[in-house]
Amino acid sequence: EGEVLEVAFDFDPLLWPWSGYLAISLRVSEQAAIDEFEGIVEGVVRVTVVSDNLGDEESMEEEDLTQTIELPIRAEVILPPPREKRLLWDQYHSLRYPSGYFPRDALWVQNEPFDWNADHLHTNFKGLYDHLRSEGYFIEVLGEPFTCFDAENYGTLLIVDPEDEFHEEEEAKLYHDVMEEGLNLLVFADWYDEGVMDQLHFFDENTRQWWEPVTGGSNLPALNSLLHQFGIAFGGRVFDGNIGLGKEYAHYASGTAISRFPGGPNEDSFIYGFELNDQSAEFISQQKKRASVAILGVAQMGLEDGRGNR
């Protein structure tokens, strides 16, 4: 434990090829926080790995089976940023293969059936992470349920492509945080269609079993349960195509559509629709169809003191 940083370790006591881990946690010490310390902290972490002697014990010295490596650590310590610049990324509800058969997010990708990366800021969303950091935002990864964070510290919670369920306590906590604590909520939902999921089952030669998807690209039934208290729901078909807002264009790859969204003459809400390809029809019945669907919605609700959230 240092004067500025508290360093903690977690590791698998037994390492095998392609398995095992070493986790390092850095936390600003209580005294450094009281002193409002700002600056660069550097140090070295030494890791010693000892392997079993599987060769000739007479010809191999014990030290030959022990190796120590040094990992340089450099961290910048700053004062807590303003709340509106602090984002919280929900990683707790993101699941991936091999814990189950979680299918790919983009259905047109044929050479990779599984969702390997679990939608993490340091893997397939690294580009988003770099962009948000360049815009002055600070992002923390939430690896625990919603009941384990203080909404007063964060401006926005991001829920991106979740596969897991949400507990009732989490639903109640999130509703309170949005409506009473001024927390903004940003949700990116992936596809879910039971008919398409039926088309994705396959026989695994390794386990000699038929594999069925645990959920779609995202667990929309769980998301709908979480968002129903806000008057929001997603549909059960898959759409794909190009979209544009102003001068910005993007490809909407295997996503869902909004089926219910709050709105009315006295409510501050907007919803945007586009004409997209119906991938459900293409997958299930090999038909080419297009449909005008809503995929982007913005609503303001909750506090009425100028801190209303979206």
Rank of each mutant, 00 (worst) to 15 (best):
G2A: 07
L5K: 00
V7F: 02
A8H: 11
F11D: 11
F11Q: 13
D12G: 13
P13E: 11
R27C: 12
V28I: 11
A33E: 12
E38P: 00
G39S: 02
I40P: 01
V47M: 06
L54V: 13
M60A: 15
E63H: 11
D64P: 01
T66N: 08
T68L: 06
E70W: 07
V77S: 00
I78Q: 10
E84F: 08
K85F: 09
Y92D: 05
R96Y: 04
G100K: 01
V109T: 09
E112W: 07
D115F: 09
N117H: 15
N117F: 14
A118P: 00
H120S: 15
H120K: 15
H122S: 15
R133Y: 09
G136D: 03
Y137G: 05
E144D: 08
E152H: 12
T156H: 05
I159C: 02
E163K: 11
K173R: 11
L174S: 02
L186V: 10
F188S: 09
A189I: 03
D193L: 04
E194F: 05
G195H: 07
M197D: 03
D198L: 10
D204C: 05
V214R: 09
T215V: 08
N224M: 04
S225H: 08
H228I: 13
H228R: 15
R237W: 10
G244C: 10
Y249S: 14
H251I: 10
S259C: 13
R260V: 10
G263F: 06
N266G: 14
D268H: 12
D268W: 13
E275R: 14
N277M: 14
S280E: 06
S280Q: 03
I284D: 01
Q287I: 09
K289Q: 10
R290E: 13
M301H: 06
E304M: 11
E304T: 13
N309T: 15
